[in-house]
């Protein structure tokens, strides 16, 4: 089977069911909305503080102490770097949840609905079924996350004071993009192997919550894909460990490949041959 046909089928599904639009849009929304919300929150807090101060003057009663005011004025201290760093959290949590839900269908739904039976009987192989999925969806997620971080940095630099180094933005964008791509690959692996897209989403969400906590507990919070959100965030506000960055990126790529080959292995191992003769199906 030609790879182009297999890829075309997956691309048609991704675009015609508006899922590509959904993935890109959900990531881009956060790239713009996060810094805007942060700015808006700051303005809201300032307004609240001013209002309360006026009331204090009018009543002669000090409602806020200086320490209380400092808490509300923290939003005034947010600069562009901090805003972008805070946005990484939303990218790698809320946006990822939305993308996982959008990509439930290619993660085992076709097997569950048995729409793959006729193509299988015609000759579809596990490689041609799985490979386009492991290219199209993670690459789209990576590019969306990558561009999204650039947009987020741009919006942050417009709304807040301060500037970035290009390397910081680049490192953050690569980390965020790669992290989202890895999570998608994890979803595809679990979904296709289990033929249960819902199970895949829940498993991945649980994994992204539990694994970093466990790794942190055992002080192994570096050199793994779940360190990428921290790297992306710290790239704006702190010095980062280049070894951690390099190794985490490489380990993520290697794990992605392992997940791909694991999926292929599972599907191939599951192939059934009931006949004594070798039948072409």
């Amino acid at each position: 089977m030609k790879f182009s046909s297999a890829f075309k089928k997956e691309f048609m599904f991704f675009t015609r069911t508006m899922r590509m639009f959904g993935v890109i849009l959900s990531i881009m929304i956060f790239s713009v909305a996060d810094p805007v919300m942060l700015k808006g929150m700051g303005a809201l807090m300032n307004t609240m503080v001013d209002t309360i101060e006026e009331q204090s003057e009018a009543t002669g009663y000090e409602i806020f102490s200086e320490e209380d005011k400092a808490v509300f004025e923290i939003f005034d201290q947010i600069d562009a770097s901090t805003a972008a760093a805070m946005a990484v959290g939303d990218f790698t949590s809320t946006a990822v949840i939305i993308v996982l839900l959008i990509l439930m269908a290619p993660s085992g739904s076709e097997q569950k609905k048995r729409s793959i039976i006729i193509p299988r009987c015609a000759g579809l192989t596990p490689k041609m079924y799985v490979t386009p999925k492991f290219i199209l969806y993670p690459v789209t997620a990576f590019l969306s996350g990558f561009l999204g971080m650039f947009i987020c940095a741009g919006v942050s630099s417009i709304l807040f004071e301060g500037s970035f180094e290009f390397t910081s933005i680049l490192l953050s964008a690569v980390s965020v993009g790669l992290y989202i791509a890895f999570v998608i690959v994890l979803q595809l692996t679990i979904g296709i192997c289990s033929e249960r897209p819902g199970v895949a989403v829940i498993s991945v969400l649980a994994a992204t919550a539990i694994i970093p906590t466990m790794l942190s507990y055992f002080r192994v919070d570096k050199f793994n894909p779940f360190a990428l959100p921290s790297i992306a965030s710290e790239a704006f506000v702190a010095e980062i460990d280049p070894v951690n960055v390099g190794v985490s990126l490489i380990v993520t790529v290697i794990l992605t490949l392992i997940l791909y080959f694991t999926t292929l292995f599972v599907l191939t191992a599951r192939q059934i041959d009931n006949s004594g003769n070798e039948a072409i199906l």
Partner: peptide, 27 residues
């Protein structure tokens, strides 16, 4: 017959004289 689920026991011989056959299955 279409190798969608595995059998427990038994023999299935497809084709005559051992040649490979193509199967089209409409579920």
């Amino acid at each position: 017959i279409c190798d969608i689920i595995p059998k427990d026991e038994g023999e299935i011989i497809l084709g005559e004289n051992g040649e490979q056959i193509k199967i089209g299955y409409l579920p």
